[in-house]
Structures are given as C-alpha cells and as structure tokens.
Amino acid sequence: MDPAQEEDPKKIFERQALPAVDMLYRQAMKYTNNPFDAEDLVQDTFEKGFKAFSSFKPGTNLEAWLSTILKNTYFNQYHKAQRRPKKLDAFSGDYSDSKLYQAGKVNPGSAKSSEQVYMDGLISKDILDALKRLPEERRKIFIETAVDGKSYKQVAEENNIKIGTVMSRLNRARTQLKKDLAGYSVAPKLAAE
C-alpha cells in the first residue's frame, strides 16, 4: 500500500492547508476590515475545514475549497448580527494596546523585531481608531473606493445609491480622516524599517 495513503489526515491537512493562511487572511480582511475578526474567521475556517476534510477530493484545489468555507462562514455567521465574533471588534472599540501587542508578538522565525511589531500594532490601532470614528456608511464607501479602488459607478450600484452620494460620502470620509490623522506621524514606522 502507498505509505501516503496511511499518513495521518491531520498531517496531510496541516501540510496542505497551512500554506493557504495568507490567502485566507487577505480574504477575511476584505470581508471584515478588521484584523481581529479576520483572525477569528481564518481560525474558524481551519477548524471547519479540518472537520470536513474527509469530504475534500484529493487532487482538487484545497485553497479554493477553504476559500469557499471562509466565505460561507462569514456570510452565514459573522455577517449576521446574532453571531458576531465575540473576541474583539475594532469598530465597536473593543480592543486595547495590550491586546494589539499580544496579537503582534514576534516569533523566533519572524523577520520583524518585537519593537517593529509593537509599532505596527500602534499604527494599526491609530488607523483603526480613525476609521472607527467614521459613520458606517462613510467608512464603507471610503474602503470600497479609496482602499479597494472600485469605480464610483460600481460602488453606487452595489450599495444602491447615486454616484453623487458615493462621491459625497467619500469626500466627507477623506476630510474627517485627514483631520483625525493630521497629527499622526508616519515617521515611527519608516524609522523602524
């Protein structure tokens, strides 16, 4: 018998699924726009993926399979108000410096220093705080247009609003962010690099 067929499914899953973590995290960030929710979503995806691994067809695309699990998990659970991630929600303000530091703690294989990781955490917190202060409708439009680069027309259609409203909300969001981050220096990050 082929030895590979006798390999522990857990080991097979680890070997095949763990390289997908970056892709899954990027996808989770697009859905949640929140590093902490994104981490929870990825972990939920891994847990569900492993539990259902026996139904995965070897030789097919595991990343796509996990991506579908993540998408379904988000829209079936996270997206519904009745089951928001419980650990942290940046836009509801439920996070702290210590949690950010903990979340960004360096590991021995990391290329980043602990100082850099900590500074990254502070930068993330400043940015997330500023975004959190935007009204939801402006934040959404800002992210879709300025961050994701969608056209005004696409954003208008997806949100069922007029293009003039898209541009108005974007401009108000930009104005508020510029004001909120006026005293914010990018120097610490640049200096630490």
Binding site: V21, D22, L24, Y25, R26, M29, K30, N33, P35, E39, V42, Q43, A103, G104, K105, V106, N107, G109, S110, K112, I123, S124, I127, L128, L131, I143, V147, D148
Partner: peptide
C-alpha cells in the same frame, strides 16, 4: 492595515 499581503506570524 486593511489589505495586508501576509497574515500575522502568530496566526
């Protein structure tokens, strides 16, 4: 912050 290329190391 919102569209990182990589997941955090500890994830």
């Amino acid at each position: 912050v919102l569209r990182p290329e990589k997941a955090p190391d500890e994830l």
